[in-house]
């Protein structure tokens, strides 16, 4: 049975983040935004599809997207 990648949580290192906004721009689901201190935060976690693009493009290596793999049931349950 196919395994599906699901979000566990975003770990954003606020010490390392310099607020360049690249993660905000590349996110296909508009999950991230910069807060009042110009640091990235996952504002819309529910929309995250766990593609991990933000993690791979972050120039400050400040984002880690923790994922889990769940069995995709044949009946199409989420």
């Amino acid at each position: 049975m196919a395994k599906k990648k699901k979000l566990k949580r975003h770990v954003i290192n606020r010490e390392w983040c310099k607020g360049c906004g690249i993660c905000v721009a590349v996110c296909p689901k508009n999950v991230l935004e910069l807060d009042s201190k110009e640091k990235a935060v996952a504002a819309r976690k529910k929309d995250c599809i766990a593609c991990q693009l933000c993690e791979q493009i972050c120039p400050d290596l400040a984002i880690e997207v923790m994922v889990k793999y769940v069995e995709e049931s044949a009946s199409g349950d989420k």
């Binding site: 310099k18 972050c58 120039p59 290596l61 880690e64």
Partner: peptide, 30 residues
């Protein structure tokens, strides 16, 4: 775990915000 390959004591790194070199570092450890 990206940090396994990094010398964490030197972070945050000295590159400017938005510098592409950090993306190269990110891709290199992966």
């Amino acid at each position: 775990d990206v940090k396994y390959y990094l010398r964490e004591r030197f972070f945050p790194h000295m590159w400017c915000a938005g510098c592409g070199h950090g993306i190269v570092l990110n891709a290199l450890v992966r």
